[in-house]
Write a protein that binds this DNA or RNA. Structure first.
Length: 806
RNA sequence: GCUGGUGUGGUGGAAUGGGAUACACGCUCGCCUUAAGAGCGAGUGCCCAAAAGGCAUAAGGGUUCGACUCCCUUCACCAGCACCA
């Protein structure tokens, strides 16, 4: 027998699969389309590491399984190669990102082929290619036409290291998501998408999609809906969710950016505002100590009719509500601190324990509303109902080079003019100096050949927008492009999209819970409103995988803990690495990579390999026990794959292999068992399963006399492909799962003392089982001197005696 | 602070109301081998020389004939949000 040497079989099958277009479904004729998508990677020249490979393998197992279940599975791959991440890497190693992209693309695709995933290699998508970003720009134009893309001057997050603005979602704890620098506030003219128009829909649809609770909650928090009311204190309008506490409002606080501040003459106020504006967002949020200054003005509390002082303080945020709040120190922690610091009066209006009391209760000292509950008072007290969202508009311009230029032209006569669709793409020129400038403008702003253009409307002098768009815009629609890659004249074909979308299974990282996943949902909703697609949610099911870490930290080149799969693939094969990664634990949990267990998995595959020559030469009848474990394994593996619990599916295969190995010593393993085993193994270890399948398939098959696998046999006759990966998945027969003999545990006062063996026909018969249990010597020992108060019988499982001492 | 999650052998983990520790790693012993490796076999939660038995799922309490699983309290760790009025 040939030895199992993975590198001798894996490339061979990878090539054959590709040649035969085995994993390229007929996009127009497919009768049972299944879109199986894995988040496409950011490529880097370092190449793919084990941390990337982990979820790809998980996604591929699911896809291969679905294909064997008869679906036309579409499993595409591409590269999210535009953006700061790739550009920074190019800067680091002193190469031009455009040149570098060619190298990384080659390297990444080579590695992705080596791990043997069932991708449709005829439909790759790279976001940095003009034939893709042409349509990203087109998408921008649709947003613009619909009034959802707008430009405004705003206080925006500025990363001094990456020298660009960032969206709110890309600022983590006041630090840049990419490089970790402290983010500053800068007032700049920027392009935004009006995602806030969709806040309610983004929130509401969460109820109907099959996503993990974790991700839904993260999105819900981010959208941050709160229901309250606005009330006028003189000319100042405040927003509150606790209208019931208005009688306790003893002052009003406005943010340093509030319009009202302009009217104030006091030097002290001006100084405070100047200082506050200079602070970074992080510093403003970090400071626990309240700061503020009295404005010198008073406004009237509309309910108490008292004049209350107006203060300016930076704990009030500009971008939320009206930028003004009523200060209720007795019932708000922050107002309480503020009042204490500046000696402002504290007036209790809700019954409660210690101040500040933030809970609900019965109102006191609140005029005609005294005695009402908080909830009732909120209904009764006059105010304009208002809903506020934490979500802010998506800032999409970037002052960088490596992205799609925003397709806008400014003309002195015509104003802001969108680039006509026929002129797309606005190609990103190859420029020598692509480094970020730090001036608030993109490097493209120093390239006159790029920005000097004719106005498309009046043919006069025009200037191009020189900012590029956020990488997250590239990835917000890529799933629409995959099925339509061959259409040069449209972003996505209507029929294709109708056939393949929404995505049936999407697997990706939980770190994208509020970035990519929210943007993609938003874009999909807009396209739905534009009548370009007939669904509002892009991903029916989303599964968040865990992370593979190394020595307790996420793999990254800077930490020097990157595990390259190449060496393991060479030594053990891609199959072993896949199975090892999946066997580590549930896909949702990730884990710490140690190669210690790899040998065990390798050994497992070797034993599978070795079994081929120990098969029974003659046709044997399978025993009841043989049949039971076979059907039990089919059931377990099937259900576990559906639930994405690959680790226990693999364990079930190992158990069956152990059983078959014992049988093989007497050459009693049948071809039927072995073939079934290979079919179940195929999604996990596709190369070795294929190799062995070809060996056992080609030898003469004597039809098993047992008809227990009838469904499978019939299906196999229908199969037109040579490959195991197109063969139909084995079916289990639940009649074969029942055991002839069942051991029922005897429990006495909660402790298992013995078991009784019962035949199939009596396992539900309480009287008989109880009699047998009472005859057990061990049971008698523990029942001696006690009287049985109660007997609980669970058929097939347990008989439980409850006693009391005599 | 708020929200959600997790906590089981030396290690990764299994079991979601019914025999805790499946499956694997590691380790120990044995067989095989000139030797190493591989392979094969046995053992491996803790206490006890062993048997019998007892004790164990972060800690404590509760519900139940029966709890890793459900409920309450506490602790630890992880993730997301956080001066959002």
């Amino acid at each position: 027998m040939k030895k199992y040497i993975p590198i001798q079989i894996e490339p061979k099958w990878q090539e054959k699969w590709r040649e035969d277009k085995l994993f390229s479904p007929d996009m127009d004729k497919a009768s049972k389309p299944f879109y199986n998508l894995m988040m496409f990677p950011y490529p880097s020249a370092e190449g793919l590491h084990v941390g990337n490979m982990y979820p790809f393998s998980g996604s591929d197992i699911y896809g291969r399984y679905k294909r064997m279940r008869g679906f036309d599975v579409f499993e595409p791959i591409g590269l999210d190669g535009f953006g700061i991440h790739s550009e920074n890497y190019a800067l680091n190693i002193g190469k031009h990102p455009m040149d570098l992209s060619k190298v990384t693309e080659k390297r990444f695709y080579e590695q992705l082929m080596m791990i043997g995933d069932a991708y449709d290699w005829s439909r790759t998508v790279e976001t940095y290619k003009p034939n893709y970003y042409k349509w990203t720009q087109w998408l921008f134009l649709q947003m613009y036409k619909k009034g959802l893309a707008y430009r405004k001057k705003a206080n925006v997050n500025w990363c001094p290291e990456d020298k660009t603005v960032l969206a709110d979602e890309q600022v983590i704890d006041g630090l840049c998501e990419r490089c970790g620098s402290k983010v500053e506030l800068r007032e700049l003219e920027q392009w935004f998408f009006k995602i806030t128009d969709y806040a309610e829909r983004l929130l509401k649809n969460l109820e109907v999609i099959d996503w993990s609770q974790k991700v839904k909650i993260a999105q819900r928090n981010w959208i941050g809906k709160s229901e309250g009311a606005t009330v006028k204190f003189g000319e100042l309008e405040v927003f509150t969710t606790r209208l019931d506490t208005i009688f306790g409002a003893t002052f009003v606080v406005i943010s340093p950016e509030h319009q009202f501040v302009a009217k104030l003459k006091s030097e002290e106020v001006k100084e405070y505002v100047r200082k506050a504006k200079k602070k970074s967002e992080l510093e403003r949020k970090e400071t626990k100590d309240k700061t503020g200054v009295f404005s010198g003005e008073y406004v009237k509390n509309p309910l108490t009719l008292e004049d209350v002082p107006v203060w300016v303080a930076d704990y009030v945020l500009t971008g939320y509500g009206t930028g003004a709040v009523m200060g209720v120190p007795a019932h708000d922690k922050r107002d309480f601190e503020f009042a204490n610091k500046f000696n402002l009066p504290i007036k209790k209006v809700v019954e409660g324990d210690n101040l500040p009391y933030e809970g609900e209760g019965i109102l006191v000292d609140s005029g005609q509303y005294t005695g009402m509950t908080s909830a009732k008072a909120r209904q009764e007290i006059p105010g304009k109902k208002q809903i506020q969202y934490h979500l802010r508009d998506w800032l999409i311009s970037r002052q960088r080079y490596w992205g799609p230029p925003i397709p806008i032209i400014y003309c002195d006569k015509c104003g802001t003019v969108p680039v006509p669709e026929k002129d797309l793409p606005v190609e990103l020129p190859y420029i020598k100096d692509f480094r970020p400038t730090g001036t608030g403008q993109s490097p493209l702003a120093s390239v006159p050949e790029f920005y000097n253009v004719k106005c498309p409307k009046c043919d006069g002098e025009g200037k191009r927008e020189t900012d590029v768009s956020d990488t997250f815009l590239d990835s917000a629609w890529y799933f629409l492009r995959y099925p339509s890659t061959e259409f040069a004249d449209q972003s996505f074909d209507k029929q294709r999209t109708k056939k393949w979308l929404p995505v049936d299974m999407y697997i990706g990282g939980a770190e994208h819970s509020v970035l990519h996943l929210l943007y993609a949902r938003f874009v999909t909703m807009v396209l739905n409103d534009l009548d370009l697609i007939d669904f509002e949610e892009p991903f029916k099911t989303f599964f968040a995988h865990g992370l593979i870490i190394k020595d307790g930290a996420k793999m990254s080149k800077s930490k020097g803990n990157v595990i390259n799969p190449d060496k393991y693939i060479k030594e053990y094969g891609a199959d072993t690495l896949r199975v090892y990664l999946m066997f580590m634990g549930p896909l949702s949990e990730g884990g710490d990579f140690r190669d210690g267990g790899m040998n065990g998995v390798y050994r497992f595959l070797q034993r599978v390999w070795g079994l081929q020559e120990k098969l029974s030469a003659i046709s044997l009848q399978l025993s009841d026990q043989d049949l039971r474990i076979m059907h039990k394994t089919i059931k377990k593996v099937t259900e576990d794959i559906e639930a994405i619990k690959f680790n226990t599916a693999i364990a079930a295969l190992m158990e069956w292999l152990n059983y078959l190995s014992r049988k093989s010593q007497e050459s009693r393993v049948t071809r039927q068992e072995y073939k079934t085993f290979l079919l179940l193994l195929a999604p996990f270890a596709p190369h070795v399963a294929e190799e062995l399948w070809q060996i056992v398939k080609s030898s003469v098959v004597s039809r098993q006399s047992s008809d227990s696998l009838k469904a499978d046999s019939k299906a196999s006759l229908k199969t037109d492909s040579w490959s195991i990966h197109k063969h139909s998945w084995p079916q289990f027969d639940k009649n074969q799962l029942e055991e002839e003999e069942v051991a029922i545990a005897i429990q006495i006062d909660g402790k298992v003392r013995d078991v009784v063996l019962t035949q199939k026909d009596i396992i539900s018969n309480k009287e008989v089982v109880e009699k047998m249990a009472r005859e057990s010597a061990k049971a008698q020992k523990f029942l001696a001197g006690k009287s049985v108060k109660k007997v609980v019988f669970i058929p097939g499982k347990i008989i439980s005696f409850v006693t009391s001492a005599d």
